[in-house]
Design a protein around this nucleic acid. Structure first.
Length: 417
DNA sequence: AAGACAGTCAACCGCCTTACC
DNA sequence: AGGTAAGGCGGTTGACTGTCT
C-alpha cells in the first residue's frame, strides 16, 4: 500500500518542458509566488504534475540560478563537501549559491565520481579499459559525446571562465571508460571505498618489509554484536602475524569484533598499531573515534573538544591510525597511552582537522593537501592523485616508489574524510 | 552514411520528513 | 495523537546527441 500519488497522473504531460510551458509557469509563479505546488498546475492551466512544476522551477526557471559551467572553485567545494557529507546533494547545493542539488548530483555522477574513482584505483587494479591505443600510442576514446556544457560553452557568450578545467575531458593516463561508478548509497560507498583502499594499499606497497609488518585489523564489534569495545580479558585473543609473531588484540587492534578474525581482510601496518590505538574504518565512517582505552568518542564531541588531527609525515605510511599529537608524545614514549582524553591524530600526510571547520564547512583546502597540489596550473587535478606506478612519462623510478605509495595512501586517507 | 556506443542531464519516481488539521 | 497533505530529497531513467567504426 503505497502513498497516494501526488496528483492525478491521468492526462498529465510528462517529459521535456516546452518553452510555452516554461513561460506559463514562470508567469504564474511571478504573479502568485512559489508554493501550493499541487494546486499550481490546475490554477496555471498546466497539464503537469505539481511536483514536476516545482522541479522545473527550482532546477531551471528560478531567477537566482547561476548559469554556466561549474567552476573549478565550485568543483573543489563539491569534492570536499561530498567527502564529508556524502550524497546529500541539497546540503552541498546550499553551499553553492545558484546551484541546484540536481545539477550538482549530475555533475558529480558524470564528472567527479569518475575522477575520484580514477585516482582511487591504482593502474594495476584498473578494470578493463575501453581505450584503444592508436598508431601514435595515444589513447583514444571509444565513443561518447561532447558534454552539453561544452556545447553551451561554445554557443554562449558567457564570460564565466572555466580556467583550464579538465573536468569534462578525459584526464591523461586515466581510464575514462570502464570505470565502476561510485555506489549509490553511503554504506555501499563506504564499503567500496574501504575495500578499494585496502586493495590499493596492498597492491601498492612495493616493500617486503612493509608486508611483513602487516597484521590483521578486525572490524568494529558494533556491527555484529552491538556491544561495546573490547576490553575484557576474554576478548583479548591472540593472533599470529604473518611474521609468526604473536600479538594480543589489545596490543594491536582496538576495533575488534570481539573475536579474532582470520588474518585476512583488513590490514594495517604494524607501526600504526604499535601506537596508542587505531581508528576503525567503521568508526571513522560513523564519525566515531576509538580511544585505546576502549572508549568511543563521537566526532562531534571530538571537534568540540578542539582535538587536533595533525600530520605525521615521518611515520606516515598512509594508515588510518591515530597517533598522539606532539603534546602527547611524551605519554606515548613513556607507554602511558591509554585512559586519557588526549588528542588523536591521523597519520595521514594530508589530513589536518585543524583546517576543517566542519560546522560551517569552511575549508582551508590548501592545508588539506599540504604540499601536494590538488590542482595544477591548468586547473586539472594533479597527477599525484592517480599516478602510482610511473612518473608521468612512462618511466618508473625506484626512488620515487615510496613517494608514490605515500601519495596514493594520502589520497585514500583524504577520501576517508 | 549508418549504426553502435557512450556521456550528459532534464525529468521522473518513490520514500521520508514536516506542517497542518 | 493520529491522519493527511505538501514539500523535499536522492536514486534512477531515458531522451538526446557527439564520436567512432
Amino acid at each position: 500500500m503505497g502513498r497516494a500519488p501526488c496528483c492525478e497522473k491521468v492526462g498529465l504531460k510528462k517529459g521535456r518542458w516546452t518553452a510555452e510551458e516554461d513561460e506559463i509557469l514562470t508567469k504564474y509563479i511571478q504573479a502568485n509566488g512559489e508554493g501550493s505546488w499541487r494546486s499550481l498546475p490546475k490554477n496555471a492551466g498546466l497539464p503537469r504534475c505539481g511536483k514536476s512544476c516545482r522541479l522545473r522551477w527550482i532546477n531551471y526557471l528560478r531567477a537566482d540560478l547561476k548559469r554556466g559551467n561549474i567552476t573549478v572553485d565550485e568543483e573543489e567545494i563539491i569534492i570536499h563537501l561530498h567527502a564529508t557529507l556524502g550524497n546529500r546533494w541539497s546540503l552541498i547545493a546550499s553551499h553553492l549559491p545558484g546551484r541546484t542539488d540536481n545539477e550538482i548530483k549530475n555533475y558529480w555522477n558524470s564528472h567527479l565520481s569518475r575522477k575520484i574513482d580514477s585516482f582511487r584505483r591504482p593502474s594495476s587494479q584498473s578494470l578493463p579499459v575501453i581505450m584503444e591505443i592508436n598508431k601514435d600510442g595515444i589513447a583514444k576514446q571509444k565513443g561518447g559525446r561532447t558534454s552539453r556544457w561544452a556545447i553551451k560553452k561554445n554557443k554562449s557568450n558567457s564570460t564565466q571562465k572555466r580556467a583550464g578545467s579538465c573536468s569534462n575531458k578525459p584526464m591523461e593516463n586515466v581510464s575514462v571508460n570502464g570505470v565502476v561508478p561510485l555506489p549509490s548509497t553511503l554504506m555501499l560507498e563506504k564499503e567500496t571505498l574501504f575495500n578499494t583502499a585496502i586493495e590499493d594499499r596492498m597492491a601498492l606497497d612495493p616493500y617486503e618489509e612493509d608486508k611483513e609488518r602487516m597484521i590483521p585489523v578486525i572490524l568494529s564489534p558494533r556491527q555484529d554484536t552491538g556491544e561495546g569495545m573490547m576490553g575484557s580479558s576474554e576478548e583479548r585473543e591472540s593472533l599470529v602475524l604473518s611474521s609468526g609473531e604473536e600479538r594480543t588484540i589489545e596490543n594491536s587492534m582496538h576495533c575488534a569484533s570481539g573475536k579474532v578474525e582470520k588474518e585476512t581482510d583488513i590490514l594495517a601496518t604494524f607501526e600504526s598499531i604499535e601506537s596508542s590505538g587505531i581508528l576503525c574504518f567503521d568508526d571513522i565512517m560513523d564519525n566515531e573515534l576509538l580511544h585505546p582505552n576502549g572508549d568511543l568518542t563521537l566526532l562531534s564531541e571530538w571537534r568540540e573538544n578542539n582535538i587536533t588531527v595533525t600530520v605525521d609525515e615521518k611515520e606516515n605510511s598512509g594508515n588510518l591510525s591515530p597517533n598522539k599529537t606532539a603534546a602527547n608524545n611524551e605519554e606515548i614514549e613513556s607507554g602511558n597511552s591509554s585512559g586519557d582524553s588526549g588528542n588523536w591524530n591521523s597519520s595521514s600526510s594530508m589530513t589536518s582537522f585543524d583546517n576543517y571547520n566542519l560546522d560551517n564547512l569552511d575549508w582551508v583546502w590548501e592545508s588539506v593537501v599540504q604540499g601536494n597540489e590538488l590542482w595544477d596550473d591548468k586547473g586539472c587535478m594533479s597527477s599525484w592523485l592517480w599516478e602510482s606506478d610511473c612518473n608521468g612519462k612512462g618511466e618508473r623510478h625506484k626512488s620515487e616508489d615510496r613517494k608514490d605509495f605515500k601519495s596514493q595512501n594520502s589520497t585514500v586517507d583524504w577520501l576517508f574524510f
